[in-house]
Amino acid sequence: MNDPSCWPKANPLLGVTITEEYLAGVVKQAKDMPGKLNGILRLHFCVWTDAETAWMTRATLEPALADFDPAEHEGKEIALGLDLSQTRDITAKACIVQTGEIEIERVDDRGQPYKVVAPTYDAWIEAWSPGDTLAARAVKDKQPYELWAKQGFLQAPKGESIPYGHIAQAVAEDAHRFKVMALAYDRYAYRSFFEPELNALGVSIEQVEHPQGGTKKGKPTDTMTAAAKRAKKEPEGLWMPASVKGLEMLLFERRIRLRRNPVLVSAMMSAVTDEDRWGNYWLAKERAANKIDAAIALCMAVGVMLAAPPAPGAKFQMFFA
């Protein structure tokens, strides 16, 4: 893969059905985003690989990290992603907001460049972990949880489990400060334990199922179904492979700023990918000590945002269109 002179051996139709420029771009993606490596090796270089590989590189993530205050977006429309945990993992909530539009250049499958106008975004996370076991888990996981909590990057409420009321209050604050288009959730603990907390606070926002694995899609909401019908397409629910690819696209095209937070950075750098026989992949972790909850929540929020119908008069196409 690293030697272009060998490419024709694995790609006999190079220059016929695909161009050398296109394949060079594919190879660059594999180097920038290791999670894409397995699929690219199999598809373009006839190399079978293990299912799991690192997802993110510093070179891809660093340009997206920025210091900004979410308060500058108050009143705007945001999408939320929520990854709930209870005792050992980190609970994470991610928010994403559109910030503008830029013209970017893409390359089609024949290596031909073309320009499109596409939206830009800001995203940030909040994270929680049980306060009573924070020190012990910091030693076990080899992560500076106590320092992150002291610096304000990680909330550590008292107790050996995370009180869902705290997270529900954070969602309620979002609903007050912003216009929440939808909250993406995974079924784990949501309907039985978290939704009642939202209802108790009188929070009324659209909630959309977003499974975290890659085996099934969530049920589309009425809004998603109506948008699909207007586009004369079959309505589809959210699923992690599409949301992961959506976040990758935003990172590759430098169209997203991520508010600097070590909890998020650690999650992004700790994630690996698992995939099915068709090349669909999603985030996973190699060891229990790898906490990828913030990365999962971010993908879920991105999935909601990119699946939303474009605003009236918008120049760009939806990612899933």
Rank of each mutant, 00 (worst) to 15 (best):
E195V: 15
R42Q: 14
E77G: 06
K179Y: 08
A231N: 11
A170S: 07
Y22T: 03
G35C: 00
T225R: 11
A267G: 01
A135N: 11
A138G: 05
Q155F: 08
G246Y: 04
V265L: 07
M249S: 15
T221F: 09
G35D: 03
D274N: 10
Q86V: 12
Y190C: 11
K179H: 14
R257G: 05
A54I: 13
A30M: 08
K31P: 05
I104D: 03
K140A: 13
K217I: 12
P211I: 09
A228F: 03
L147S: 11
Y121A: 05
A71E: 10
T17S: 08
P130D: 06
L198Q: 04
Y190F: 15
W282E: 06
L80D: 05
M268W: 04
W55G: 02
V304S: 04
G131E: 06
A228I: 08
L147H: 15
K36I: 01
D108E: 06
D274C: 12
F193V: 14
P8Q: 09
V107M: 14
P220G: 07
I205A: 03
C95V: 14
A54P: 05
V180I: 07
I104H: 09
K315P: 02
I205F: 03
C95K: 00
A135G: 12
E195C: 09
R255Q: 00
A301N: 06
E101A: 15
Y114I: 01
H44T: 05
F45E: 06
C299T: 03
V302W: 01
D109G: 14
G313V: 09
A64G: 01
L283N: 04
I125Q: 01
M224R: 11
A321Q: 06
L43V: 13
D222K: 13
K229Q: 15
A288F: 14
P63F: 12
D276L: 08
R177V: 11
W48E: 15
K232M: 06
P4E: 09
T221G: 08
W278M: 10
P119R: 12
F316T: 11
G39F: 04
M249Q: 14
A297W: 06
R177M: 00
R106W: 04
K28D: 00
V16A: 15
P310C: 12
A170K: 10
E160W: 10
C95N: 00
W128G: 00
L147P: 02
L283Q: 07
D293P: 01
V272P: 02
R191M: 01
W148N: 02
M56T: 07
Y188K: 10
R58K: 14
G111Y: 07
I256Q: 00
Q155V: 09
L65T: 06
E248A: 04
L37P: 07
K233H: 12
D174K: 04
L298Q: 02
A321Y: 11
E101F: 11
L43G: 13
C6F: 14
K150V: 12
Y145T: 00
N261T: 04
E21Y: 10
T225P: 02
K232I: 10
L23Q: 08
F320W: 14
Y188I: 12
G131F: 02
V263E: 08
A170T: 04
E173Q: 14
V26C: 08
P157V: 08
A138M: 09
T133E: 10
G81T: 03
V272N: 07
A301G: 02
A170D: 09
E74L: 14
R177N: 02
P196N: 05
Q112I: 08
